[in-house]
Amino acid sequence: MIQMRRKRLTNKNKIYTPGSETTISLNYSPVSEVLEVEFTGGKIYHYLHVRPEVWEDYKTEVRMGGSSGAFVNARIKPFYDPVRLE
C-alpha cells in the first residue's frame, strides 16, 4: 500500500452508504479512473485504474440492495492497489 498526499475527489459522483458497516461513501472519477473509498474507521483510499464498468456495476449492485462493503472486498481490493490519503 502506498501512502501519499492526494486530494479528495469532488462530490460529483459520490454515493453515501449509510446502511453499510464498512463504508461511509464511494466516489469515482471517470477521467482519472480513480475510485475513492471512505471507510467507517475514517481511512480514505484511492484505487487507481478502475474501469468505468466497475463503477457502473457498483451502482447497480447498491441500487439492487447489495452490500457496498462486500462489493469492495470482492471486486476492488483483490484487483487494485490502494493509495491511502493522509
Rank of each mutant, 00 (worst) to 15 (best):
K43R: 10
Y28R: 04
F79M: 02
Y45I: 00
V54W: 04
Q3S: 13
R63Y: 05
M1W: 01
F71H: 02
Y58V: 04
S67R: 03
A70T: 09
P30D: 04
G41F: 00
E21C: 06
I2D: 14
R5M: 09
Q3Y: 08
Y45A: 11
N73I: 01
K77C: 10
P18N: 04
F79H: 12
K14I: 15
P78H: 00
I15M: 11
R84Q: 15
I2F: 08
E86K: 14
G65T: 03
I24C: 04
K59W: 01
V72Y: 03
K7H: 07
G66E: 06
V72A: 02
N27P: 06
E86D: 14
S67M: 04
P52D: 10
P30T: 01
G42E: 00
G41Y: 00
Y58D: 03
S20G: 07
K59L: 06
K43C: 09
T23F: 06
S29D: 15
V72M: 13
P30Q: 04
R5T: 09
L35H: 04
E21N: 12
P18L: 02
P18I: 02
T10C: 02
Y28S: 01
G65E: 01
Y28H: 03
G41S: 10
I76G: 03
V31T: 09
S32R: 11
R5E: 15
Y58I: 03
S68N: 07
T40S: 11
V72D: 09
